Amino acid sequence: MTSIKLLLADDQALVRGALSALLSLEADLEVVAEVGSGTEVVPAVLAHHPDVALLDVEMPGLDGISATAEVRAASPDTKVLIVTTFGRPGYLRRALQAGASGFVVKDTPAAQLADAVRRVHAGLRVVDPTLATDSLLAGESPLTQRETEVLQAARDGSSVAVIAARLFLSEGTVRNHLSAAIGKTNATNRTEAVLVADGNGWL
């Protein structure tokens, strides 16, 4: 029996090791590479030619959604399954738009995860049912690309002047985008707007 070759990408070594151990118990699954950051994903895919890459969303260097798009461009035969702690509706939508074939949360039972890998490998789409419902209810992000960038820059509490310098915008423009984002997220201030947008996976 030919085994399905897997690549695991997760910045938490313990989680990566546990996933590897669990999946390796399956006779038809073989973990051929493990990496700890998003920037390592594509080089590992090109070196090991996995059938399925299991990617976390939040990783250093490059997040799992951006890495998904890069994997699909560099190695179209490699399917991507997002396995994440962060079951946010916006993440699901963005991951599928980037070319992921599946999206499951990390507390998925081992047998179900193995089954998800097999189904993705067979060309099917696998999505956590609760998340799929939440995603439909949450809808698309109401933020424009520029509003999203400004909120991302505001995440660390930077001042308007710092955000403006970082994004090469005028302070007035930054204030306008922040104001629009606060309105669209029904927040009372920019900190709350960041939390709402983050919670929905829009950032």
Rank of each mutant, 00 (worst) to 15 (best):
H177W: 13
T188A: 08
L143K: 07
E171S: 10
A164S: 11
E147D: 05
D198M: 08
L169P: 00
V194M: 07
D198R: 08
E147Y: 07
S141W: 03
S179G: 12
L167Y: 04
E147L: 04
T188P: 02
R175V: 02
N186S: 15
T188F: 08
A165F: 01
G199S: 08
A154R: 12
T173F: 09
T185P: 00
V196D: 08
V196E: 10
T188W: 07
V174H: 06
A197V: 08
F168L: 13
I163A: 03
E147H: 04
A187K: 07
S141V: 02
S141G: 04
H177T: 00
A161F: 00
L151Q: 03
L178A: 10
L143D: 00
A153G: 11
G139L: 02
A164D: 10
K184M: 07
I163L: 06
A165K: 15
Q145F: 08
T185M: 06
G183C: 03
T148R: 15
E192V: 13
L195D: 11
S158D: 12
D198G: 06
V162K: 13
T144E: 12
N189Y: 01
K184R: 15
H177K: 06
Q145D: 13
V162T: 15
A154T: 11
V162N: 15
E140Y: 03
L167I: 14
I182N: 03
S159N: 08
A187P: 06
L143A: 05
R166F: 01
L178W: 02
G139S: 08
Q145S: 12
Q152A: 12
T188N: 05
G199L: 09
K184F: 10
T188E: 08
A193K: 01
G139V: 01
V150Y: 07
N189Q: 05
A197M: 11
H177S: 03
N176M: 06
E149W: 11
L195R: 14
G183N: 13
A181W: 04
G139C: 01
V194E: 09
I163N: 11
N186A: 14
T185S: 11
A154V: 09
A161E: 15
L151H: 07
V194C: 09
G199A: 09
L195H: 07
A165C: 03
E192G: 01
V162Y: 01
G139K: 10
V150Q: 02
S141K: 05
P142Q: 10
G157S: 02
E171W: 05
L143C: 05
K184A: 07
I182K: 03
A138C: 07
V174E: 06
V150G: 02
R175A: 15
N186Q: 14
D198T: 13
L167G: 10
V150K: 07
V162R: 14
T148S: 10
D198A: 10
H177G: 02
R155Y: 09
E192A: 14
V160P: 01
G172E: 14
T144Y: 08
T148L: 09
A165M: 11
R155I: 01
E140G: 04
A153I: 11
R175S: 13
T173P: 00
L169N: 02
Q145H: 06
A154P: 11
N186M: 01
A193H: 00
V174P: 00
N186C: 09
G183K: 14
T148M: 11
N189S: 06
N186V: 01
